[in-house]
Amino acid sequence: MMKLDTVAAFAAIVDAGSISGAARLMGRPKSVVSERLAELERELDTRLIQRTTRKLSLTEDGETFLPRARTILRETVEAAAELSERRGTLSGPLRIAAPVGFGMLHLGKAVSHFLQRHPHIDLSLDLDDDFVDAAADGYDAVLRVGTIADNRLVAKRLAHTRRLLVASPGYLARNGAPARVSDLADHRGVLYSNRESDWRFAAKGGWVVARPRAVLRVNNGLVMRDATTAGLGISLLPSFYVADALEKGDLVVLDVGCEPESAEIFVVYPRDRNPSAKVLALVDSLRSGFGDPPYWDIAHR
């Protein structure tokens, strides 16, 4: 019968890229990890990992077995966590991802408060501005800013946030302030590269769109904020990025007669996986910590 520790050794070897690396991850002697892999291969009657003097690589059977192995290990952990939850204790691993800028500015304190309330949770927080596939990348949940169009996912709203058209006083002194949405076409824009470059504004007849001349495209809101503060151009940013800069006077909000399209912050998780009590507790904790309206919006309404 297949043993759980042999499956765990196989997955650890894949993750670490070597048997010695897996031994360090598992806190086991290298010889033990190597024997666990050999035992699993004997049980399955196939070679899972091709060993050479230079590297390890998955065989075709190894590629096929790996996602099943990860499912086995994840469900084992979730089953143990569920028993703890039935006893009123949230425990075990919780892996989430979030955008870099939002995480740096607003998740440190919020996550610390959550872990103080639930000290038996082992939280892994990955900050990444590239697209993270919540349904395929092994996360329990992912924080997203913007619309959720993937029907594989369930989205839990955390907060509504304004998006503000901002520029530095120095940029405005040199280039003047736009008075209408159409004026933005004559200005330089600092644009978010992971979002369509069009800026949308709510007008009486529906949405109107601005297309500024791009001076910089970047996939990080903090870099956008800093470039805008330095006078490079105008940007349209969620208020959670610029609240402090507005308070200090480093940036000012521009009024073009229409309100920019706002944004939503969500926690999303795969639809085919029941959310654990840990994920739901995290959602409740973040909602409470951010507030409604969120604390970063209150001073600029």
Rank of each mutant, 00 (worst) to 15 (best):
E60L: 10
L164F: 07
V77I: 14
R86K: 13
L94Q: 10
R74W: 08
Q116D: 14
V142H: 02
I49L: 12
L58Q: 02
T52A: 11
E75R: 13
D122T: 08
S112Y: 08
I72V: 15
L48C: 04
A38N: 12
T71P: 06
K109T: 06
G138Q: 10
D130N: 15
A141V: 00
L125S: 07
P93T: 07
G88M: 04
R157S: 09
L158K: 03
H106T: 02
D133N: 13
L66C: 11
R54W: 06
I72K: 07
S57G: 12
L66E: 09
E41K: 02
P119D: 09
S84W: 05
S168C: 10
L37R: 13
L73H: 02
D45F: 11
G108D: 09
S91W: 04
H113P: 01
F131Q: 08
A110M: 04
V100N: 03
G101Y: 09
I49H: 05
R51G: 04
D133Q: 09
D128Y: 12
H120T: 08
K55E: 10
A81I: 00
L83H: 12
R144C: 01
A149R: 13
P93I: 05
E63F: 11
R86G: 05
S91V: 03
D128F: 11
D130Q: 14
A97Y: 00
L37V: 14
L107V: 04
A135Q: 03
R157H: 10
E85N: 14
P99R: 07
